[in-house]
Amino acid sequence: MKARTCWNAVCTVEDLVPESGIAVWTEDGPVAVFYLPHRLPALFAISHTDPFSGANVLARGITGDLKGEPIVASPLYKQHFNLNTGVCLEDDSVRVKTYAVLLDGNRILLETAHKQREAVAA
């Protein structure tokens, strides 16, 4: 059974920076939201935590594409992460969490685990 999830508004369109990322705080921890206006879809969300350093910095990396896939380069040690899959290009055994993200009017919605439900179940 698919785990219960919920969609939360995390920021607005005005908060986004074209061709770059911003960080938001969610129940699931820090998440990086990227806006690549020349792609369709243009919004991507992955964990903000760089798995190689443990620091919350991925939103501050340089975005772009490699072989057509959208990527962000970690600002610390420069590994690349596929924004669609979260997989690290230099080491495919490493993968950061990805989140579904969508635009609802002016709001950016992010799909995260339904914490309250989990708490009740536990």
Binding site: D15, I22, V24, N56
Partner: peptide, 15 residues
């Protein structure tokens, strides 16, 4: 651009 988390300006980076 210098907001740590755009939706929670007071949040301190927990790591």
């Amino acid at each position: 651009r210098f907001r740590e988390f755009v939706n929670l300006p007071q949040q301190i980076d927990p790591v």
